[in-house]
Amino acid sequence: MNTTHVWIVLAVIGTILTTATIVSKVLIAKHGHSPTLDNLLDRVQAWWMMVVVLLLAFLFGRAATVLLFMLISFLALREFLSLIYRRRADYFVLVGVYYVVLPYQYWLVYDAWYGLFSIFIPVYAFLLMPIVASLAGDTERFLTRSAKIQWALMISVFCVSHVPALLFLHFPGYDSNIALLIFLIAVVQASDVLQYICGKLWGKRKIVPSLSPSKTVVGTLGGIALATMLAASLWWMTPFTPFEAAALGLLIAVMGFLGGLVMSAIKRDIGVKDWGSMLSGHGGMLDRIDSLCFAAPIFFHVVRYLWRAG
Rank of each mutant, 00 (worst) to 15 (best):
N2H: 08
N2D: 13
H5K: 09
H5I: 14
W7D: 12
A11H: 06
G14A: 12
I16H: 00
T21P: 03
V26K: 15
V26F: 06
L27V: 11
A29W: 04
A29F: 01
K30Q: 06
S34R: 08
D38F: 02
N39Y: 02
L41R: 12
L41C: 07
Q45H: 12
W48V: 05
L54S: 08
L56N: 04
F60R: 04
R62T: 12
R62E: 15
A63G: 12
A64Q: 07
V66C: 09
M70F: 06
M70N: 06
F80N: 02
L81G: 01
S82M: 06
S82R: 13
R86D: 03
R87M: 04
Y91T: 15
L94R: 06
L94V: 09
V95P: 03
V95M: 07
V97A: 09
V100M: 11
V101K: 05
V101M: 08
P103S: 12
Q105G: 04
Y106P: 02
W107M: 14
V109F: 11
D111W: 09
F117P: 02
V123C: 10
V123L: 15
Y124R: 03
A125P: 01
A133K: 09
L143E: 03
I149N: 00
M154I: 13
V157Q: 14
V157P: 03
C159W: 08
A165W: 05
L169T: 11
L169R: 01
A179Q: 04
L181W: 03
A186L: 12
Q189S: 14
V193S: 12
G199C: 04
K200I: 15
L201Q: 03
R205W: 04
S214R: 07
G222Y: 07
G223L: 08
A225T: 14
L226M: 09
A232C: 04
S233W: 01
S233Y: 00
W235G: 02
M237A: 06
F240K: 05
A246S: 03
G256P: 02
F257T: 08
G260L: 02
G260H: 07
G276R: 01
S280Q: 14
S280I: 14
G281E: 07
G283T: 09
G284W: 06
D290K: 08
L292T: 05
C293M: 15
H301W: 12
L306T: 14
W307N: 00
R308G: 14
R308T: 14
G310N: 07
